[in-house]
Amino acid sequence: MRRLEGKTAIVTGGGRGIGRGIALRLAEEGALVAVHYGRRRDAADEVVRTIEDNGGAAFAVEADLESVDGVHRLVRSLDEELATRSDSRHFDILVNNAGIGTSSTFEETTEDMFDGLFAVNVKAPFFLVQQSLSRIRDGGRIINISSGVTRIAYPHIMAYNLTKGAINTFTLHLAQLLGLRGITVNAVLPGIVDTDVNASWLHTPEGRKHAEDISALGRIGEPSDIADIVAFLSSSDSRWITGQLLDATGGSHL
């Protein structure tokens, strides 16, 4: 039996990159997957089609997470979609993956840039979990996608790094809050992963060599590397792990 058979999972930012890999992997384990997207409906639909073509179940759901109103819209849409499929608005797994980055240095960062990063990367997960407390089943799983930049200093993207530090703190306190319900909360901290976000610099000889050289394993991370970790944390195999920050950088900068 697949480890997530009968479970329902929500993956924010599930249409592209790491989120896409996670959505595909959770569906492979038997979960019904809600693939959230912000603007790229085509990408989310492609993920849903791929899941269904492989015998899984999924649906796409849209919401702009730049505001709390968007979070409320996502929750309402999930309620409606889930009710048509299972006659219940409850779910088991929430993966807070959606996020935005920046190419602005510390000196170049404006207040609007700073606020935008925190809105999507911190405020949205905070209020999405808050709104989900009555919907996520006891014994459920919350997995937050953080970043290796909380361990490795990259001061040129400091504002982004601060948002991931906040997610780590959120993970710790949420695990304590929800522990008695059997809900585990953990964060996964990826390093450099081969996604379209990184393609412009990673797919150059210099960029590839840099990424390979800083990893103890001597290679670049793939979305599947992160997705497999999330699948483990989503399953009963991880039942005794909570409040943890799992470094998934391939041993970068050890």
Rank of each mutant, 00 (worst) to 15 (best):
M158T: 12
P223I: 11
V35Y: 07
S236L: 02
S103K: 15
G13N: 06
K209W: 09
V185E: 01
D196F: 11
A211G: 07
N161C: 14
I229T: 12
F127R: 09
L202T: 09
V122I: 13
V188H: 12
R208E: 14
D115F: 15
K209S: 13
N144V: 04
H72I: 06
R239C: 02
V71A: 04
L94T: 00
D247N: 13
A119C: 14
L162V: 14
A58E: 03
I145T: 10
N161S: 15
L246A: 00
D64R: 04
G17F: 10
L128D: 02
A119D: 15
Q244T: 08
E206A: 12
S67E: 08
V129A: 10
I229S: 02
H173N: 15
L178M: 12
L78H: 06
L26S: 03
M158V: 13
K7R: 08
S146H: 09
L128P: 03
G21A: 09
R141P: 00
D53C: 01
I18A: 06
H203L: 08
G191P: 05
S86K: 06
R16P: 00
L162I: 14
L4D: 00
A34M: 14
H203M: 08
F126C: 05
H203K: 13
K123N: 12
D247E: 11
H253D: 08
G179K: 11
T50L: 10
T163W: 01
A153S: 13
E222V: 07
A119S: 15
D64H: 02
L26W: 02
T84Y: 01
E222F: 11
P125Y: 04
L26P: 01
A43H: 05
L246D: 02
A166Y: 07
K123T: 14
A159T: 08
F114Y: 15
R40V: 07
F59P: 00
A98R: 09
G207D: 04
S200N: 14
L82Q: 02
M1W: 05
R151D: 10
L172K: 15
T110Q: 12
G243S: 04
V61D: 00
A124W: 11
T50F: 05
H210K: 14
R39M: 01
A153N: 12
G191Q: 11
D138M: 04
A9P: 01
H90K: 07
T105N: 12
A153G: 10
R135S: 00
V68P: 02
D196R: 15
S103H: 14
S134T: 13
A44T: 06
G99Y: 06
L202K: 08
V61R: 01
L74D: 05
L128C: 12
E62N: 09
G221V: 03
L202C: 13
I22K: 09
G99P: 03
